[in-house]
Simulated assay, not measured.
Amino acid sequence: MRYRELGRTGWKVSEVSFGAWAIGGSWGKVDDNDSIKALHKAVDMGVNFFDTADVYGDGRSERLLAKLRKEYKDKIYIATKAGRRLEPHTVEGYNRQNLTSFVERSLKNLETDSIDLLQLHCPPTPVYYMPEVFDILDDLVKEGKIKYYGVSVEKVEEGIKAIEYPNVQSVQIIYNMFRQRPAELFFELAKKKKVGILARVPLASGLLTGKMKPDTKFEPDDHRAFNRHGESFDKGETFAGIDYEVGLKAVEELKSVCPSGMTMAQFALRWILMNDAVTCAIPGAKSEKQALDNFASGDLPQLPDEIMSNIKEIYEKYIYNYVHHRW
């Protein structure tokens, strides 16, 4: 495993880190014992950064990570998110009382006195134009409840606005073979400001693993079954916003350029890490097997220029018109 600096925190985090949405919920059946094994396997493979949120399984994911922290003490960093507990999820909800209560709840779930990295969890766009919200985060740092803060965004424009605030250390954004726009402008701006980039949804909700078929069935509580058209939250969170059938066609062509010795998941993760503005990719893992596959990508060689060009061509052929203008 290789490591990269996260923003201006001084931390060096694993290039492939652990996204803990799937072990919390909304991804079908998940067993806590299997999740713990996956977490242990990740640490064994050099992973030292774990990303979660207070709404993943209503705190389930945070509580699982609290168990992991007990075993590894100061050897790992845990980032969580706040904001999506708001019902309704409105701009007005991003106030001192709510943010403080969300942080205190996460502190309890994580069994810690200070959150390593707190991220606003895809707030409505107007929140990025409210300096008073970021003042609240600064105060939470001064109080010692959080060490650093960042944001998780839906759109490139939100990321560009967020990094205007001097103490934003990281931006979490969807970046994968099916969502290439962040690299056009935003990444260079973030790099100049020394802001870390966490590449989320790196496998396009599993589409880029190459294991899905037209008749693949998803459990009713899996967002890949109930949120394909944005019924519950932003459409871009599910299959990166791509029509499922179109995505399958693109994946078939990607398989034809995948280097031998790499699984499709490893290929997709290695592609993300080819951009040096990215701090880490954060795939999930619900089992030891998935962890082994995903986190081994941190040791793989760089992709040749020809293959990078092939990927770009496939993106432009199948995907560009669906997503490039939207996020």
Rank of each mutant, 00 (worst) to 15 (best):
S106P: 07
P131K: 06
V171Q: 01
A82P: 10
A204T: 05
H121S: 08
R179F: 02
T125P: 05
E132C: 01
E62D: 15
G196W: 01
I146D: 08
E87L: 09
V91D: 06
P126D: 10
S101H: 10
A79K: 05
L120I: 11
D74C: 03
K142H: 05
E71F: 10
L68N: 04
F134I: 12
G196L: 04
E92F: 05
Q119I: 10
A66I: 13
Y77F: 15
F178M: 14
Y94T: 09
I197W: 02
P88A: 08
E111T: 04
A162M: 05
Q172H: 06
G93P: 03
I146K: 07
H121K: 04
T112K: 06
E164I: 00
L185Y: 07
C122Y: 10
E184M: 04
E104W: 00
E92R: 10
D135E: 15
N109Y: 13
K81E: 08
K161M: 12
E158M: 06
A162L: 03
I76L: 11
K147Y: 06
V133K: 01
I173D: 13
S152M: 07
T80V: 12
C122A: 15
V103R: 01
M177L: 13
P88H: 07
Y148G: 03
L189A: 09
E87R: 12
F186T: 10
V133P: 02
R179Q: 14
K142T: 09
L203P: 01
L203I: 11
Y149L: 04
G83D: 10
P166D: 13
I173E: 12
P123Y: 01
Y165S: 03
V133A: 05
R105T: 15
P88F: 08
I160H: 08
M177E: 06
T125S: 12
K194C: 00
Q172E: 15
Q119H: 11
G93C: 06
Q97L: 13
Y129P: 00
V91A: 07
H89G: 03
L65M: 11
S101R: 14
L107D: 13
Y175S: 04
Y72V: 15
I136Y: 02
T90K: 12
V127N: 05
I174L: 12
T80S: 13
P202E: 10
A204K: 01
A190C: 13
K192E: 15
I174S: 09
I136V: 12
S106C: 14
V168I: 14
R179G: 06
V103S: 01
Q97M: 08
L107S: 09
V201F: 02
E184V: 13
F134T: 12
Y129D: 14
N167G: 00
L64Y: 12
G206Q: 04
D113V: 12
K67Y: 07
K194G: 00
P126G: 08
L185Q: 05
V141W: 03
K142E: 14
G93F: 04
S152T: 14
R85N: 15
R63C: 03
S101D: 14
